[in-house]
Design a protein around this nucleic acid. Structure first.
Lengths: 242, 242
DNA sequence: ACAAATGTATTGTCCGACAATCCTAATATG
DNA sequence: CATATTAGGATTGTCGGACAATACATTTGT
């Protein structure tokens, strides 16, 4: 048996630069908030030119691992749930996700989220939900945009209160995707204001009682109500979200 | 009142290049599989230099919208669930997600997934699940790696059969995050092979009967069993996944 | 007709230069 | 002395050109 050579690493330099920095971030050598060396220093350390370093940085940048901070220097950042949600929802939209798929996932997740929330929500989180509900209550019944805002915000605050970043990221990405279509629905649903307000009130009541089953049930009703709205508004569930 | 000027767009050129291309992809002018112009042509069209074009391309590239294809030319690509899941799970890992958060989300999602699967799984999807189960059955009871593989693959196939790309992306990202820790658990759990095999068998039976409640229940038991494994293996649930 | 050699288009990498911007520190002004 | 201004330096953003490396298309040789 002759000697075996390892397969050569033929990745472009800018990819290697990206990976090298990413590795040091991941392994903890570069902690959150740490300043990366300047481009010139990176050139020196890697032994490549600025062009390559810069292309590598662009790759990192888009994945949210790194950010231009004060003094324009690059700082290490750990992506938060909102950013992850944004990237994910955008990708799914581009991947051809449909209203139907998004809504079905929403209908699967949020009742469970409400159930868990009932056993966990802090007083502050409950207060935030009440604030949303109060805002909705005081909104004009025909201000569709405002109603949509409060409807989504309610979901948002519920997700926030779960104290679980993974869940939060997933629920938030759903919120982002559902937003646009909700406007359509609410625009064409009579009594939308009243019905959503009622659902929110019941859900909050159940959460306050720490009644998991009831929180779940009311959330299901709330979503089922929205689903009927989709039918009434004749939204094509097979259409891509965009 | 004096004349008001619109705020100038002061984004760097490479960002604008990225946005411009992205916009055309999103609006459908550039469809999936379409070849992008060469770098030289892009320079001419945008009126900027190759360096800037290339940096812009790197930004696009990382979000999975574009890919180097045959002839090295850039081709438009719509990201699929696996890629989205990969990006999302990586970001969450870097964002500091813990085993506990991941597992809790898993425990929230998969029982519901099983419930939905019971009403929807095609014969092929069921067949795929059976194949996994059979593979696990024939595996050696002490081959931890193999068992982990089949355990994750079972989740994977279930998610696949749901015929919902949004759910698929979310479930897949959980699978990616849970993989490593599952190995720890299975390594230290006695009868892991037997218990997982039993759970899979029961779940498949429920799915075949189209019994939603039972499918959900058995999946919950399966996951609860895994949870006990975490306790036995003394996995620190507050530790970051990495 | 198939294989080899050649040519060409395109990307990957390098270099050097300068403008634009921000930070810091010295200086002027009250 | 405190504040505003100015000057300087450091760093990023953009440009232009150059060449090597590679993949594809075409021609050539047998």
């Amino acid at each position: 048996m002759t000697h075996k050579f390892k397969t050569l690493d033929r990745a472009p330099v800018y990819v290697k630069v990206c990976n090298a920095i990413e590795e040091d971030i991941l392994s903890g050598v570069l902690k959150e908030g740490a300043l990366l060396p300047t481009e010139a220093e990176l050139c020196a350390q890697f032994g490549v030119t600025r062009s390559s370093v810069r292309e590598g940085i662009r790759l990192l940048q888009q994945s949210g691992l790194v950010e231009r901070g004060a003094a324009k220097r690059l700082v290490v950042k750990s992506p938060n749930a909102s950013e992850i949600a944004e990237v994910a929802s955008r990708s799914m939209a581009l991947g051809g996700a449909t209203f139907g798929e998004v809504f079905e996932t929403l209908a699967m997740l949020y009742p469970e989220a409400a159930r868990i929330a009932a056993g966990r929500l802090s007083d502050e989180a409950l207060g935030a939900l009440c604030d949303v509900r109060d805002g909705l209550r005081d909104a004009a019944p025909d201000a569709a945009d405002e109603i949509v805002g409060y409807a989504v915000e309610f979901f948002q605050q519920l997700a926030n209160g779960l104290d679980n970043r993974v869940m939060l990221a997933m629920l938030q990405s759903l919120n982002l995707m559902i937003g646009a279509s909700l406007r359509l629905v609410i625009d064409q649903t009579p009594n939308a204001h009243e019905r959503i307000l009622g659902a929110q009130t019941e859900i909050i009541a159940a959460l306050k009682k720490r009644d998991e089953a009831q929180a779940r049930a009311w959330m299901m009703k709330h979503i089922e109500d929205l689903r009927r709205g989709y039918v009434v508004a004749k939204v094509n569930l097979d259409a891509r979200i965009l």
